[in-house]
């Protein structure tokens, strides 16, 4: 039983990386912008966060550095696609390619470096409950932050006026513009918030989840996070559960590898990627399901005054 409790704990931990990034991407997609640079932002943020912790020894400063890195890159992307109306796909791709190169370049010094063992976390009182405590209440605070963030985003998007404005810009930037909302500035804000959350996810990955310097350590999680927003049909709660589901797939394959199952490890390592493809195909099969919540202007350029 104890090992299943540990598996659940590991699943929540792995899902947190995906959840934070995907929630960020959800916000900028709700405003109508797709940022394919998620992987690149996470890579740069992972290195920025890791290097900061190596030099300062403080995890929280590291998270801040990751958010800063993600935010700055997202702002560059945002300026290009929102003001210069460059193609969103190509620009996001450029960001990912740049991020892969830059993180490898800047990260050379930190390859194979390890962060010191952390003291374990435990929610006072609840962490000592047998099994349940191990499964749910001995997590890094960031795991609970992801849950709180989900609740906050649900409240923000669907219960506040600002959330309504953000969604209306995603549906019809022309209508929002004619009502006098600064469409471009709001979109930029959404893109930067998305970048900061991707950055936080990248930093959490390199500081807590796998505290070891490896080139390309994000290994597709940014892309899986992008796919998650589609799976979840742009609904925050579904993003969170989707992230845990994929965290579970990742952990299950590690678990099976650890058990010495007679399947070559490469096939087990493929499962998160193949699962992404399969789920994507299953969900996209019904176009109505996707379109019902899809921001109508997503991916399209907006020219104010045209």
């Amino acid at each position: 039983m104890e090992q299943y409790a540990l598996l659940i704990a590991a699943t929540l931990n792995a899902g947190t990386v995906l959840a934070i990034a995907a929630l960020g991407l959800l916000i900028n997609e709700r405003s109508g912008i797709v940022n394919l640079g998620a992987e690149g932002m996470m890579l740069c943020a992972a290195i920025a966060g890791f290097a900061t912790v190596v030099h300062t020894g403080n995890d929280w400063v590291g998270f801040g550095a990751g958010m800063l890195a993600g935010g700055v890159l997202a702002a560059m992307f945002g300026y290009l696609v929102i003001w210069l109306n460059t193609n969103q796909f190509a620009t996001g791709l450029a960001l990912t390619l740049f991020g892969a190169g830059f993180s490898a370049f800047a990260g050379v010094k930190y390859v194979q470096e390890k962060l010191p063992e952390r003291s374990s976390f435990s929610v006072p009182g609840l962490g000592d409950i047998p099994l349940l405590g191990t499964a749910l209440f001995k997590q890094h605070p960031m795991v609970y932050f992801a849950m709180a963030l989900t609740a906050f985003i649900i409240w923000f998007l669907f219960k506040t006026r600002s959330g309504l404005v953000l969604r209306s810009i995603g549906e019809s930037p022309e209508a929002a513009h004619s009502l006098g909302y600064p469409v471009r500035r709001i979109r930029l804000a959404a893109v930067v918030v998305g970048g900061m959350l991707c950055g936080l996810a990248g930093a959490y990955l390199s500081i807590i989840y796998t505290p070891l310097g490896v080139e390309g350590m994000v290994s597709g999680k940014g892309w899986i996070a992008l796919a998650l927003t589609t799976f979840a049909t742009w609904r925050p709660l579904r993003v969170l559960f989707g992230a845990y589901l994929f965290g579970g797939v990742t952990m299950l394959q590690f678990h099976l590898q650890g058990q010495g199952v007679e399947i070559p490890s490469q096939f087990l390592s493929m499962t998160p990627y193949i699962a992404t493809i399969v789920v994507l195909a299953l969900i996209s099969r019904n176009p109505a399901l996707i379109r019902i919540n899809m921001p109508a202007s997503i991916g399209k350029p907006f020219y104010p005054g045209s």
Binding site: A90, A94, L95, F98, F102, F105, E215
Partner: peptide, 15 residues
């Protein structure tokens, strides 16, 4: 990996 940095920069500035 400087190569990758320059490649990414080139596409960015091109766009």
């Amino acid at each position: 990996s400087l190569t990758g940095v320059f490649q990414g920069l080139l596409l960015f500035t091109l766009l």
